[in-house]
Amino acid sequence: MQGFDLATPTTVDEAVALLAREGSLAIAGGTDLLPNIKHELFEPRTVVALGGIEELRGIELESDGTLSIGATTTLAHVAAHDEVRCRATALAQAASLVAGPQLRTMGTLGGNVLLDTRCQWYNQSYFWRQSLGFCLKKDGSVCHVIESGSKCVAAASNDTAAPLLTLDAELEFASNTGRRRLPIAELYKSDGVANLRKEPGELLVRVRIPALETGRERLGAYGKLRERGSIDFPLLGVAVRLDVVDDRIVHAALGAIALQARPLALQKAAAALIDAPASGPGFDDAVLACAAAAARQLHPVANVPGDAQWRKEMAPVYVRETVRAARAGTGPVHGR
């Protein structure tokens, strides 16, 4: 691994001062950062460790019912936390399926939200990429996924982004110029080279999930397509949120990842569920309409290492099954 200096701040202010310097990168779990440094995809001069900063830790239920999760909370902790499982079921399920057990013990929610996009032509060693002649995302000028493509289509591969989109999560960033809050829907953009609307010096402090309006039942589930039952990144991820009042779906949201650079909100698919009955034949019909709408919107390309055609065909299946799982209070959908 190429060398760097390690800084270990204990406050957000110290951290953002360090991160403001050119060539600085933050490390929390390190599960993505270090492989990327080993692959010479990232070449930081300074790595700023976040583990010593109290403010970034822990899960709290705020007085207004907002669930506030510190950015360096581990995925294992998120997956196992009772309040997360209850109030953000799909998030807990998604966190429980990231990579394998050790990586969930190490990896953090913030790291997953800000995960670099992934591509079979990118997440490789320097030697491999040199033999290829590099690519659009790093050191090169050609896209190998879409020939003659001018826009990088490396895939958002962060499982937790999909449920957080459906839950209208809000992100708190700190920088050396102050703090700001950003709805997660505004964080991502369709550029695989850098899919975050975030300045390099900005530090994710907390992720907040707003409370549910009273009288609503919030249901959720996550579906993850991958070939193995562990370790692998998603070939497709689908999160579902259903808000139910009196057996009627009053609000629905779907999020999908691992298709293109940006985690997608599937609004047309969600619209097929809104105002539908939450059980019986009416629900069944709405689920199928939702899956069909999702299939029209989801077009996997050969970015991540997996069978693109299969991923495309699995999209409506996973949407359908994940909606059903949300309603049934089961899930995650995995291994189908």
Binding site: I27, G30, T31, L34, V47, A49, P101, L103, M106, I231
Partner: peptide, 24 residues
């Protein structure tokens, strides 16, 4: 971080030593 052969326990939790900076 793909194989688990370097798993050690840090405060009793299994982590991958190949993706843990020693200073941390």
């Amino acid at each position: 971080g793909d194989c688990g052969a370097c798993t050690v326990l840090v405060d009793g939790e299994p982590v991958l030593a190949c993706l843990t900076l020693a200073r941390l």
